[in-house]
Write a protein that binds this DNA or RNA. Structure first.
Lengths: 205, 205, 205, 205
DNA sequence: TATGAATGAGATTTCATTCAT
DNA sequence: CATGAATGAAATCTCATTCAT
């Protein structure tokens, strides 16, 4: 918005590198600023503090991520249980979106999901899991009710949310190329959906 | 080796608490030593350094863990592919052993698997996954060969090792009671085995 | 001088608050400017520096204070020693004037007298005491001369000046209401005057 | 208690100087440590922190001061109102004790009473005043009850406690020699006691 | 067998101030 | 008339580590 945000951008760029390399906690403001050719004071002028700098690095991608999660969950909650047989395509669609999002901000997502210990975002994966878990709960309930003598296996439901999130993080850390990632996530998601249907219920009592 | 290990043991006990609470990186040697009624110098006499203290805390359980892993993998490598239909019991047996081991040294395992960032053990889960991955490779190869036009999906194979390890860590962090843990891990392992068989292969080319 | 002093005034107003709250030394220019909707640079344009800002806040009341002090001292120096018996009314008059002045610029006076550590005004009370001390000196001399074998107790003279100033500061910090303050200061001044007459002299040699 | 506390003592000595010169808030740990030929870390080993260092500097004299205050107040509370005519000697005794105490730890007392802004002791004078105020309350009550139509002038009572404390601080800052101080405090205390008796009461209603 | 003392390098943060625009 | 950007110096504190004794 000002004539030149060069310093701000340089700082963000250098912070990104440092966070990625050392993680938030061990990242050194001094290092970042030296790299950017500035003094640490500049961080406190341009951002609030170390956390503020991190926020500047990840906030936009984070917003998009949360947006996608919310719309996925909303869809999930309005989906018909009977339709579960062909939801696969749906899931594929979500997975595609997610992969594209993750890889279009690769560094930021890595920081957010893997390198944010010690920051305000250190529990983001857990929060996302919680969102999913809650979102899937209704569908699971309907699904369980549909079969007498069965009830939701709460632990399995949660674990499925956990490994779904985990699947994307694992992908991110093991495959740098987006096209390949799009291929690789397919069977994973496929397996997840099929297993979900099969293992989400347990015998009542 | 017996006269007077009191200090050593007190130190180990206090370190365990601190590591569990704050994680290795943020644990304070001074704190630990003060708690043990000693000074930091004692750590450098009795152990080598901070990492050495951690090692003393976790080495025995770690040894047992590696032992169990190795024997599991060895078994896996000698197993017959044809037998895969009823390997379920086998896996249950392994899972039981693993859960019992993990829960008989709960604190140490938590430290090792969840609180060791910054230490020499920070990649232990990855190493275990690697072991598993390698161990499952031969069986997977045989299994793939048995079906023409199919080959191993390397990524899926690795991911299965990943979530298998993850399953135990997730259990550890979400269920403190061993009996309940033994119940909860069952469907997880069941799902894992069944899915393994189904998803480990992909179309050739 | 009139078109647009808004910024200047806003700055002064906000500075007043901050100085009052935290004292000069711990007051933060950034805070003040942010509160005023300006940046720190503005302070250096509109005033000279932090001290200049303080000066702008207190200069008018300070001028009046010094004026009153000077006229009080001038009167004191021209007063007749013989008249000391009924000077009481005089002192009451001065005290009233002083209280009215102090309370008509309560905030500024508080800053000046209690919150100016670290600024150019940090010794104002001492300077005022010095003025008083010098002013009372002549009267005291005449008074001492009037009684053979007596001389001025220099220390007591100074201490009286000290507690006279102190009396007003104490009042300011312990009574926010002007009417009540006017009542409370009466016996204090009364005591001061009477004791002055009695204790200002000591035996010669 | 150890072989040599040289560093500790050097640190305390240098801190004393720095605190005296700049006051607690503006005193620089770096400076103090450099002066003592140590690093700042040493402070955090030998004391807890900056406040801890100050505490080490002043704690002994502070203890004695509080002790003396307490015994003075206890005496005051058990004193007979009828005896007030010849209490003067009593007060002289207290004043002598106080002056001796203050001057036998001159630097520490200066720090405590004049240079402790920003530390845990910054309100010590106020606390002492409060103690005195409370202590004198009972005597004042009896004294007021003894004359119908009179009641305690709460403000004057407090102000007397205030200037009594102030008298000692003023002395400390204006007279470095103990013998001279002992002389100078006499008429001050004398005046205080006489005025107390005269001004502590006001007309009822 | 351990202590006590101290280091040295680092951390984040705060601040008044400057100055080109 | 004031901003926005940035400096540079200083602040307190924390820590793992060392080593003579």
């Amino acid at each position: 918005m000002s004539v030149d945000n060069k310093s701000r951008e340089r700082l963000i760029e250098c912070a990104k590198k440092e966070f990625l390399e050392k993680g938030f906690a061990k990242a050194s403001l001094r290092n970042i600023c030296a790299q950017a050719g500035l003094t640490t004071g500049a961080v406190y002028f341009l951002f609030k503090d170390k956390n503020g700098l991190l926020e500047a690095v990840v906030s936009a991608p984070l917003g998009e991520l949360m947006q996608l999660m919310r719309s996925h969950i909303a869809e999930e909650e309005h989906s018909d249980i009977a339709a579960y047989s062909h939801v696969a395509g749906d899931h594929d669609y979500f997975a595609d979106e997610m992969v594209k999002l993750l890889y279009s901000h690769y560094d930021e997502m890595m920081i957010l999901l893997e390198k944010s210990q010690g920051s305000q975002f250190e529990n983001l994966p857990d929060k996302v899991i919680e969102m999913l878990d809650n979102g899937y709960m209704r569908a699971a309930q309907l699904y369980a009710d549909a079969m007498p003598g069965k009830r939701i296996n709460r632990y399995m439901l949660h674990w499925f949310s956990h490994i779904q999130v985990d699947a994307f993080i694992h992908l991110l850390t093991h495959e740098r190329d987006m096209q390949k990632a799009l291929e690789k996530i397919k069977p994973v998601l496929d397996m997840l959906v099929k297993s979900w249907v099969e293992y989400i219920r347990e015998d009542d009592k």
